[in-house]
Computed example of a mutant assay.
Amino acid sequence: MAVDAAIPTVVSPGRKAYISRMREHMEAIVREAGTIALKYHGGLTKTDIDFKSEADLVTRADREVEDFIASQLRAAYPWVHFVGEETAAEMDYRSGEAFVLDPIDGTTNYVHGLPYFAISLAYLRDGVPQAAVVYAPALDALYSAESGQGALLNNEPIRASQNDDPGHSLAVTGFVNLRSRVQPDNLAAFGHVAYQVRSVLRLGSAAVDLCYVADGKMDFFWEHGLNVWDVAAGALIVQEAGGVVTGMDGGPDYLSGRCGILAGGPNIHGRAVRLLKEAENA
């Protein structure tokens, strides 16, 4: 299964043409990979599902999607490191060029036949996202962005919410598997924020959550304990849609997982930081 997309001439990675052509190629690859994901969606058997831990599932579809995308990227860009959740998670994304992939973000939803899952692919240079694609194939929603060029949903521009009132905000969050007793478990923050906003949802896919912040469906999103492949693509899409992305403490580290992630519209983000700090100090 090959994607018919031109391989760019090797030029300085900082040049806009290089990033633009790469982003277009990433879109084509990820959209094709979506057909693999849909083939198994809601129809997996027990033999197709493994448990990496009490908190993490991995399926036949995760592996096939990652294998396909990795083979396409390595053939087209052999000089770029590949960091994949299932097969190359130990690779360093913080220096040089790197692709970072979550083949199916929202695996529990995927296994149960729910539509809130996505393929999340980002291109980073020296640890900074430069191009991003998030594709939710069951929703036929392809989000993309490149640094300095804005964010798109199915090739149409999107913008983050301009709401500045927490009381009128729709927030979204996520939890680790609570039975695993991993701390922090987000329950205290959830309990505090829920009393301050219109509602808090949990959709089960950080990539989808971030994209819904980017296109204004949600006002802000926060979560502990995520990995770079969960957030790198969605974070750039939020930023290019005019939103703000930080750690939950308001600091710059949102990729390592040490500080969690908080993404929101430009007018609500600072207020969300204060809500989370109130919860921490309660």
Rank of each mutant, 00 (worst) to 15 (best):
H269T: 04
A232D: 12
T107G: 07
D230T: 06
V244P: 08
T108P: 02
T59D: 07
Y123W: 14
N227Y: 12
E66I: 07
A145E: 01
L170C: 10
H41W: 15
P115I: 07
E97T: 00
E278G: 01
D102I: 08
D185R: 01
R258F: 03
E146C: 09
E156N: 07
Q196C: 04
G113R: 10
Y77A: 12
L38C: 07
F117K: 05
P137Y: 10
G264N: 03
E27L: 11
L152F: 14
L142E: 03
G113C: 07
Y77Q: 03
F117L: 12
A55T: 04
E240T: 08
D209V: 06
A141H: 11
V11M: 15
V213H: 09
G113M: 10
R202D: 07
V273Y: 00
R202S: 13
K277N: 05
A151W: 09
N109W: 07
G270E: 05
A233M: 09
R159W: 08
L124D: 07
N186T: 04
S144F: 09
E32S: 04
R202W: 03
A188V: 11
S53H: 04
L201T: 08
Y77L: 10
A151E: 11
M248T: 04
P13I: 12
V11G: 03
V65W: 00
R63K: 11
R23N: 14
Y212R: 15
H192C: 02
H41C: 02
Y77P: 06
L153I: 15
R63L: 14
D164P: 08
P8H: 02
V10P: 05
Y18M: 07
E146Q: 14
L114T: 03
K46S: 12
C259G: 03
R31Y: 06
V3G: 00
L187C: 11
T45E: 10
G242Y: 03
Y93M: 01
P157G: 04
L236K: 05
M26C: 09
P252F: 11
T45Q: 15
V111S: 10
A88K: 13
D67V: 00
E280Q: 13
R21M: 12
L170F: 13
N267E: 05
A272Q: 03
P166F: 00
S147A: 15
L275H: 06
G113A: 08
G127D: 12
R63Y: 08
D249C: 05
A279R: 09
